[in-house]
Amino acid sequence: MNQHKIIFTGPVGAGKTTAIDSISDIPAIKTDADASDMTRQRKKATTVAMDYGVMNLEGGEKIHLYGTPGQERFDFMWDILVTGGIGLVLLVDNSRAAPFKDMAFFLESFSDFIEKTSVAIGVTQMDKSQTPTLEEYYAQLKSFDCPPPVFAVDARKTQDVSILVQSLLFAIDPGVSCE
Protein backbone atom coordinates (compact mmCIF):
# COMPACT_ATOMS: atom_id res chain seq x y z
CA MET A 1 0.00 0.00 0.00
CA ASN A 2 1.08 3.54 -0.71
CA GLN A 3 2.87 5.51 1.95
CA HIS A 4 0.86 8.68 2.26
CA LYS A 5 2.52 11.36 4.30
CA ILE A 6 1.90 14.88 5.41
CA ILE A 7 5.03 16.66 6.52
CA PHE A 8 5.09 19.18 9.34
CA THR A 9 7.99 21.55 9.44
CA GLY A 10 9.06 24.79 11.04
CA PRO A 11 11.60 26.22 13.44
CA VAL A 12 12.36 25.01 16.95
CA GLY A 13 9.37 25.28 19.22
CA ALA A 14 6.88 26.22 16.51
CA GLY A 15 4.47 23.50 17.62
CA LYS A 16 5.15 20.66 15.16
CA THR A 17 5.09 17.89 17.74
CA THR A 18 2.01 19.36 19.38
CA ALA A 19 0.20 19.75 16.07
CA ILE A 20 0.88 16.16 15.03
CA ASP A 21 -0.24 14.98 18.41
CA SER A 22 -3.49 16.89 18.17
CA ILE A 23 -4.71 15.14 15.00
CA SER A 24 -2.96 11.80 15.34
CA ASP A 25 -4.90 8.67 16.30
CA ILE A 26 -1.98 7.45 18.30
CA PRO A 27 -0.07 9.55 20.78
CA ALA A 28 2.60 11.17 18.66
CA ILE A 29 5.86 9.37 18.86
CA LYS A 30 8.07 12.11 20.04
CA THR A 31 11.72 11.94 19.63
CA ASP A 32 12.37 14.82 21.93
CA ALA A 33 15.62 14.90 23.75
CA ASP A 34 16.97 17.33 26.23
CA ALA A 35 17.87 20.40 24.38
CA SER A 36 21.38 21.49 24.59
CA ASP A 37 23.39 24.50 23.56
CA MET A 38 21.51 26.96 21.36
CA THR A 39 18.01 25.73 21.81
CA ARG A 40 18.13 25.41 25.56
CA GLN A 41 16.96 28.92 26.19
CA ARG A 42 13.85 28.51 24.16
CA LYS A 43 12.43 25.24 25.31
CA LYS A 44 13.14 22.28 27.52
CA ALA A 45 13.03 19.48 24.98
CA THR A 46 13.52 19.62 21.27
CA THR A 47 13.01 17.06 18.58
CA VAL A 48 16.21 15.49 17.39
CA ALA A 49 14.91 12.85 15.00
CA MET A 50 11.41 12.80 13.62
CA ASP A 51 8.02 13.04 15.18
CA TYR A 52 5.51 10.56 13.96
CA GLY A 53 1.74 10.29 14.15
CA VAL A 54 -0.89 8.55 12.11
CA MET A 55 -4.45 9.13 10.99
CA ASN A 56 -6.41 5.97 10.34
CA LEU A 57 -8.82 6.37 7.47
CA GLU A 58 -11.84 4.39 6.42
CA GLY A 59 -10.95 1.33 4.40
CA GLY A 60 -7.77 0.79 6.39
CA GLU A 61 -5.67 3.44 4.70
CA LYS A 62 -3.36 5.52 6.81
CA ILE A 63 -1.91 8.97 6.62
CA HIS A 64 1.47 9.19 8.22
CA LEU A 65 2.27 12.47 9.86
CA TYR A 66 5.93 13.32 10.05
CA GLY A 67 7.50 16.22 11.83
CA THR A 68 10.89 17.40 10.80
CA PRO A 69 13.44 18.01 13.47
CA GLY A 70 13.47 21.59 14.56
CA GLN A 71 17.19 21.85 14.67
CA GLU A 72 18.56 22.87 11.36
CA ARG A 73 21.63 20.71 11.52
CA PHE A 74 19.58 17.64 10.75
CA ASP A 75 18.16 18.88 7.50
CA PHE A 76 19.80 16.10 5.49
CA MET A 77 16.83 13.97 6.43
CA TRP A 78 14.32 16.24 4.80
CA ASP A 79 14.81 14.88 1.31
CA ILE A 80 14.12 11.36 2.43
CA LEU A 81 11.22 12.55 4.46
CA VAL A 82 9.33 14.31 1.69
CA THR A 83 9.42 11.43 -0.78
CA GLY A 84 5.83 10.45 -1.39
CA GLY A 85 4.53 13.33 0.68
CA ILE A 86 1.11 14.81 -0.07
CA GLY A 87 1.90 18.30 1.10
CA LEU A 88 3.64 20.47 3.62
CA VAL A 89 2.39 22.11 6.78
CA LEU A 90 4.71 24.92 7.80
CA LEU A 91 4.40 26.23 11.33
CA VAL A 92 6.03 29.53 12.08
CA ASP A 93 6.55 30.67 15.66
CA ASN A 94 5.51 34.30 15.79
CA SER A 95 7.36 34.90 19.02
CA ARG A 96 10.78 34.15 17.61
CA ALA A 97 13.16 36.93 16.69
CA ALA A 98 12.67 36.85 12.94
CA PRO A 99 9.61 34.86 11.90
CA PHE A 100 9.78 35.99 8.26
CA LYS A 101 13.34 34.79 8.00
CA ASP A 102 12.26 31.47 9.47
CA MET A 103 9.41 31.25 7.00
CA ALA A 104 11.63 32.10 4.04
CA PHE A 105 14.18 29.53 5.16
CA PHE A 106 11.65 26.70 5.24
CA LEU A 107 9.87 27.75 2.07
CA GLU A 108 13.22 27.77 0.33
CA SER A 109 14.40 24.47 1.81
CA PHE A 110 11.23 22.72 0.70
CA SER A 111 10.71 24.67 -2.52
CA ASP A 112 10.91 21.63 -4.80
CA PHE A 113 8.44 19.75 -2.69
CA ILE A 114 6.08 22.73 -2.45
CA GLU A 115 6.28 23.19 -6.21
CA LYS A 116 5.08 19.62 -6.69
CA THR A 117 2.51 19.64 -3.94
CA SER A 118 1.41 22.57 -1.81
CA VAL A 119 1.96 24.28 1.50
CA ALA A 120 -0.27 25.63 4.26
CA ILE A 121 1.19 28.00 6.82
CA GLY A 122 0.17 28.17 10.45
CA VAL A 123 1.44 31.11 12.47
CA THR A 124 1.70 29.91 16.05
CA GLN A 125 2.21 31.63 19.39
CA MET A 126 0.24 34.65 18.21
CA ASP A 127 -1.24 34.83 21.68
CA LYS A 128 2.24 35.52 22.97
CA SER A 129 3.34 37.82 20.22
CA GLN A 130 0.85 39.70 18.08
CA THR A 131 3.40 41.02 15.66
CA PRO A 132 4.10 40.56 12.87
CA THR A 133 0.43 40.52 11.94
CA LEU A 134 -1.17 38.18 9.45
CA GLU A 135 -1.47 41.15 7.07
CA GLU A 136 2.31 41.34 7.06
CA TYR A 137 2.54 37.63 6.33
CA TYR A 138 0.19 38.04 3.37
CA ALA A 139 2.43 40.80 2.08
CA GLN A 140 5.49 38.56 2.42
CA LEU A 141 3.81 35.89 0.33
CA LYS A 142 2.63 38.21 -2.46
CA SER A 143 5.14 36.78 -4.92
CA PHE A 144 3.41 33.40 -4.98
CA ASP A 145 1.26 32.80 -8.06
CA CYS A 146 -1.29 31.27 -5.81
CA PRO A 147 -0.61 32.46 -2.27
CA PRO A 148 -0.88 29.62 0.24
CA PRO A 149 -3.33 29.59 3.15
CA VAL A 150 -1.98 31.41 6.20
CA PHE A 151 -3.87 31.12 9.46
CA ALA A 152 -3.34 31.96 13.08
CA VAL A 153 -2.89 28.54 14.63
CA ASP A 154 -2.58 27.36 18.16
CA ALA A 155 -0.98 23.96 17.75
CA ARG A 156 -2.66 22.82 20.95
CA LYS A 157 -6.07 23.27 19.37
CA THR A 158 -7.11 20.29 17.28
CA GLN A 159 -9.55 22.40 15.37
CA ASP A 160 -6.93 24.89 14.28
CA VAL A 161 -4.64 22.13 13.07
CA SER A 162 -7.54 20.40 11.36
CA ILE A 163 -8.56 23.51 9.45
CA LEU A 164 -4.96 24.05 8.43
CA VAL A 165 -4.62 20.52 7.06
CA GLN A 166 -7.99 20.75 5.31
CA SER A 167 -6.92 23.96 3.63
CA LEU A 168 -3.74 22.24 2.46
CA LEU A 169 -5.78 19.52 0.77
CA PHE A 170 -8.14 22.01 -0.84
CA ALA A 171 -5.23 24.13 -2.00
CA ILE A 172 -3.95 21.06 -3.82
CA ASP A 173 -7.38 20.17 -5.17
CA PRO A 174 -10.37 22.47 -4.61
CA GLY A 175 -12.47 19.99 -6.54
CA VAL A 176 -12.32 17.43 -3.80
CA SER A 177 -15.26 17.30 -1.44
CA CYS A 178 -16.16 15.41 1.61
CA GLU A 179 -19.15 13.22 1.05
Binding site: L57, T158, S162, Q166, I172, D173, G175, V176, C178
Partner: peptide, 20 residues
Protein backbone atom coordinates in the same frame (compact mmCIF):
# COMPACT_ATOMS: atom_id res chain seq x y z
CA UNK B 1 -7.70 21.85 -11.36
CA UNK B 2 -6.43 18.38 -11.96
CA UNK B 3 -7.76 15.97 -9.44
CA UNK B 4 -5.10 14.00 -7.69
CA UNK B 5 -5.48 11.71 -4.71
CA UNK B 6 -9.22 12.23 -4.95
CA UNK B 7 -10.38 9.24 -2.98
CA UNK B 8 -7.66 9.63 -0.43
CA UNK B 9 -8.33 13.34 0.11
CA UNK B 10 -11.97 12.68 0.61
CA UNK B 11 -11.17 10.21 3.34
CA UNK B 12 -8.79 12.57 5.08
CA UNK B 13 -11.33 15.37 4.95
CA UNK B 14 -14.07 13.18 6.32
CA UNK B 15 -11.76 12.26 9.11
CA UNK B 16 -10.76 15.82 9.87
CA UNK B 17 -14.21 17.25 9.89
CA UNK B 18 -14.38 18.34 13.45
CA UNK B 19 -17.10 20.84 14.39
CA UNK B 20 -16.10 24.22 13.14
Amino acid sequence: PIKRHKGLFKKILNKLHIPV
